[in-house]
Simulated scan of single mutants.
Amino acid sequence: MPFIQANIKKEIEEKRKDDSEFREAWDESRAEYELIEKMIMLRKEENITQKELAKLSGKRQQTISKIERKETVPTITAFNNLLNALGYELKIVKKQ
């Protein structure tokens, strides 16, 4: 039996249209995912490994790995700690 190809983006959009609870949860998770993706990008741009970031931040490498694989959502304090260790800070700006 051949694999069935799925269009995940299309399926998510359909689910968002039909299920307001799913839509709310999905939309809320996007901001978290985007922040984590940005942190990963910054870590790589700075040529810092997860192990090095763990040493700089006082976190365990396994914890950083779980955050980057989106298996756990860090608290704001933990996320801010990781950003500080990378030499960055979290700011709040008004949407345009």
Rank of each mutant, 00 (worst) to 15 (best):
K9L: 13
E24H: 10
S57P: 04
K55T: 09
T49N: 05
K44E: 14
E13T: 07
N84V: 09
W26S: 02
Y33H: 12
K15S: 10
I76N: 11
L53M: 07
I76V: 15
D19I: 01
D18T: 14
L86H: 07
E52G: 04
K15D: 09
V73I: 15
K44Q: 15
D18C: 12
R23L: 09
D19M: 03
N81Y: 00
E34L: 12
I92P: 05
A85V: 03
L86Y: 06
L82Q: 05
K70I: 00
F3N: 10
L35D: 04
I4P: 04
N80Q: 15
R30M: 08
M1P: 11
D19N: 13
D18P: 00
G87L: 03
K10P: 06
D19T: 02
Q62E: 12
L90T: 12
T49G: 06
F22M: 02
E32N: 13
E71H: 06
Q96W: 01
L53E: 05
E34I: 07
D27M: 06
F79V: 03
T75L: 03
G58R: 00
I40E: 04
E89S: 14
Y33L: 14
G58Q: 01
K9Q: 14
K38Y: 06
Q50M: 12
F79N: 02
A31M: 11
